[in-house]
Amino acid sequence: MHGLHARLPKNFVLEERLERYADAIELEPRRLAGRWLEGCSPVGGPRLRELRLDLGCGKGGFAAESAAREPDVLFVGIDSEPICVAYAAQKAVEDGLANLVLVPALGRDVAELFAPGEVGRIILNFPTPFPKKKEAARRLTHLDQLLLYRQVLAPGGSVVFKTDSQPLFAFSLTQFELAGFELTWKSEDARADRPDDPVSWYEERLGRQGATVFGLEATPGPLTGQVEQTAELSLAEYLPEDLTQLSYVPHGMQGTVTNLRNLRAKQGARH
Rank of each mutant, 00 (worst) to 15 (best):
V213N: 02
G255E: 04
G156P: 07
V76I: 08
E38M: 01
P195E: 11
P195Y: 13
P82V: 09
A269H: 08
V119D: 00
G252T: 12
W185C: 06
V152C: 10
L246A: 02
A98H: 13
L168S: 02
E177Q: 15
G58Q: 02
G225A: 05
V160A: 09
H2I: 13
S158D: 11
D72G: 13
V213L: 02
L55Q: 03
E118N: 06
D95R: 11
L32K: 12
G268E: 11
L173C: 15
E241W: 14
V159T: 04
L124W: 05
A89D: 02
H271E: 14
L51D: 04
D72Y: 10
E65P: 04
K132Y: 04
T230A: 09
F130P: 08
Q90F: 06
L27T: 11
L100D: 02
F161N: 00
L183F: 08
W36C: 04
L106R: 09
P131H: 01
P82G: 08
S158Y: 15
G60Y: 04
A231W: 14
G77R: 00
Y238M: 00
V159Y: 09
E94M: 14
R108N: 04
K59Y: 11
P46A: 13
R20A: 14
A115Q: 01
K59P: 09
K134S: 13
Q90N: 06
G255D: 02
A63H: 10
L153G: 08
R205T: 11
A154M: 07
Q166F: 13
G3Q: 11
S41Q: 06
L8I: 11
G210T: 10
F62S: 00
T163G: 01
P116A: 03
L246T: 05
A192T: 14
R108K: 12
G156H: 04
A115D: 01
E241H: 12
V257K: 01
P82A: 10
E50P: 14
P222K: 07
L235C: 06
F181T: 00
K91F: 15
G56A: 01
L18H: 05
A211W: 10
E26A: 03
L97Q: 01
E65C: 05
A231T: 13
R108C: 13
V213D: 00
A88K: 00
L74N: 04
F181N: 01
W201Q: 15
T163W: 05
V159I: 12
L146A: 03
L168P: 06
